[in-house]
């Protein structure tokens, strides 16, 4: 089953073409890592998937339906920064999505037994990311790695069809990064989510991804670099059963 489909998607701002002719069929449960040089349109790609931007050409479908025009709970996102709300404790951050979606449109919160059930669910999620002890602390008092784990828990609470990650571990030191990788991989394996992760870290892409996409310009006009946008130049399935370093595959046309 295909979770995410891009058909001939392009994005241009005025005369500047950022992305062009993106074609992609992503199977459900794929961990897709997107790499590319700075300015290759990685962020734009993610914004398209979030509906923060609308593609100027082509179409995107999610689970067979056209992608909604606005961000919604069917997609979750973890950014490199500003992913959690600074004014809410860790527990409240995880409850945020549950309360907003379970509550009425007017109050956006729950009371009584339902509220207690949501809190229990949120505590379980905090435990899954190893933040039980930090439940009542504000993000400002958490380390960078803890904040990103919290952001994961917050996003996973709503079980999104598609999890989008924008350089989620880019600001972490190597030790924390490795721990976060292990956690993310475990959560992904357990839940079988479809993930699209944008990163500039090649080793991260190949460590986590089951499929690695490379965004780059296919055509280049030295006199007007804005004329052509980036496209998917490499599409590499990563074989998890093979020993590391075995992935060497020809480019797709």
């Amino acid at each position: 089953m295909s979770a995410l489909t891009l058909k001939n998607v392009g994005m241009r701002y005025g005369d500047t073409v950022v992305l062009e002719r993106l074609n992609l069929i992503l199977d459900s449960g794929t961990f897709c890592a997107v790499v590319g040089a700075s300015g290759a349109g990685k962020s734009t790609f993610l914004k398209l998937l979030l509906s923060e931007l609308q593609p100027t050409e082509g179409s995107i479908t999610l689970g067979g339906r056209p992608l909604p025009q606005e961000p919604g709970p069917e997609r979750g996102v973890v950014y490199q920064r500003y992913s959690v709300f600074p004014h809410l404790t860790a527990l409240e951050n995880v409850c945020f999505g549950l309360e907003r979606t379970e509550g009425s449109a007017l109050f956006g919160r729950t009371w009584g037994a339902k509220r207690r059930a949501l809190r229990t669910e949120a505590r379980d999620l905090l435990e899954a990311v190893g933040l039980t002890a930090a439940a009542d602390r504000f993000p400002g008092a958490l380390s960078g790695g803890m904040q990103q784990r919290l952001a994961l828990a917050q996003t996973l609470a709503l079980k999104p069809e598609l999890l989008l990650l924008d350089e989620p571990f880019g600001a972490l030191d190597p030790g924390n990064k490795q721990a976060a990788h292990a956690l993310l991989q475990a959560l992904w394996a357990e839940r079988g989510m479809t993930v699209v992760m944008v990163t500039h870290d090649l080793s991260e892409a190949f460590t986590l991804g089951t499929r690695v996409l490379v965004l780059d310009k296919v055509r280049e006009d030295p006199h007007s670099p804005e004329r052509f946008g980036a496209s998917i130049t490499y599409d590499l399935p990563v074989d998890r059963s093979a020993p590391p370093g075995a992935a060497s595959l020809p480019p797709v046309s």
Binding site: L50, G76, Y79, R81, Y82, F96, R100, A105, T155
Partner: peptide
């Protein structure tokens, strides 16, 4: 990012 995040968490 916070405003986008809020929307992905079900807030209008």
């Amino acid at each position: 990012e916070q405003l986008i995040k809020a929307q992905t968490l079900g807030a209008g």
